[in-house]
Amino acid sequence: METLKSIIQQGEHQQLDFKFRIDDAKKIARTLSAFANTDGGRLLIGVKDNGKITGIDPSEEIHMIDAAVDMYCKPKLSFQSRVWQEDMRLVLEITVQPTGEKPVSSPDEEGKWRVYVRRKDHTLLANKILLNVWKQEKKPNAKPEKFGDEETHLLGLIAENEPVTLSKLYRSSKLPKNRIDHLMVLFICWKLINMEISEQGTFYTTVID
């Protein structure tokens, strides 16, 4: 049987985040939208980053969550809530399911609407390749039986330099940047390459059969 302590013992990860309390609806909207854009996730409010339970007033925190999803998530997100009690302290759990309406966007610190994803225990900006992958996934994506010179050239560059950044591919290839971007999107949809987004940047590697 799942308990609050068993959840906390997992530590923060791609689908779990701890918050001492919610002070900024815009900021928490970025975490919620990132959950929705990735694999879904749970937010525990009233828990420090180190896992210590501090407790909160659920009515105050749910007000901030309502504001976050109503005002700062496009399209508006739905969520489930649950209140846990542990050692006379209350913790609010917010669960967000992965969305079928990618992307969900939220405002950054300057108020510009951006798209975020979860990677490990971090909320990061989605890049243009991922945004276009989501668009391409809504279209037919049959992999050709034979590749042309451009596809063969770019796949070779990735294999020779992996893990490789997009900027390095721009410098190493004579193909136009927009053509490289388009091929990278197709390669991901065809499951020929992997894209790893991290705090250090975005890196691409070939898929090993």
Score class of each variant (00 low, 15 high):
206 T>Y: 04
24 D>I: 01
144 P>M: 02
40 G>T: 11
25 A>P: 09
198 S>L: 15
41 G>L: 09
42 R>W: 05
97 Q>F: 12
103 P>S: 05
27 K>L: 09
47 V>N: 06
181 D>Y: 01
182 H>V: 04
34 A>P: 10
149 D>E: 09
29 A>G: 07
166 L>V: 00
69 V>C: 15
180 I>V: 01
2 E>H: 15
54 T>R: 15
207 V>T: 11
26 K>Y: 03
135 K>S: 10
174 K>Q: 05
207 V>F: 13
25 A>T: 02
86 E>D: 11
71 M>E: 15
48 K>S: 11
105 S>L: 07
6 S>V: 01
199 E>Q: 13
170 Y>C: 03
175 L>D: 02
7 I>P: 14
113 W>D: 10
44 L>N: 09
85 Q>I: 10
138 K>F: 05
98 P>H: 09
144 P>D: 06
186 L>S: 10
139 K>A: 00
140 P>C: 13
22 I>M: 09
153 H>W: 08
188 I>T: 08
113 W>Y: 05
145 E>C: 03
106 S>P: 10
151 E>C: 05
34 A>E: 13
91 V>R: 00
58 P>S: 05
83 V>K: 04
62 I>W: 07
56 I>S: 02
155 L>A: 08
203 F>K: 07
2 E>P: 13
49 D>L: 14
137 E>A: 15
119 R>T: 09
135 K>N: 09
62 I>T: 12
69 V>M: 10
208 I>P: 04
31 T>W: 00
128 K>W: 06
98 P>D: 13
98 P>Y: 08
25 A>N: 06
103 P>Q: 07
194 N>S: 14
82 R>S: 02
186 L>M: 04
202 T>R: 03
157 L>I: 08
89 R>A: 04
164 V>Y: 05
8 I>S: 01
134 W>V: 06
89 R>Y: 02
197 I>H: 07
46 G>A: 04
117 V>C: 14
122 H>T: 07
65 I>A: 12
33 S>T: 13
200 Q>E: 15
43 L>M: 10
13 H>W: 02
82 R>N: 01
204 Y>K: 00
71 M>Y: 15
59 S>A: 07
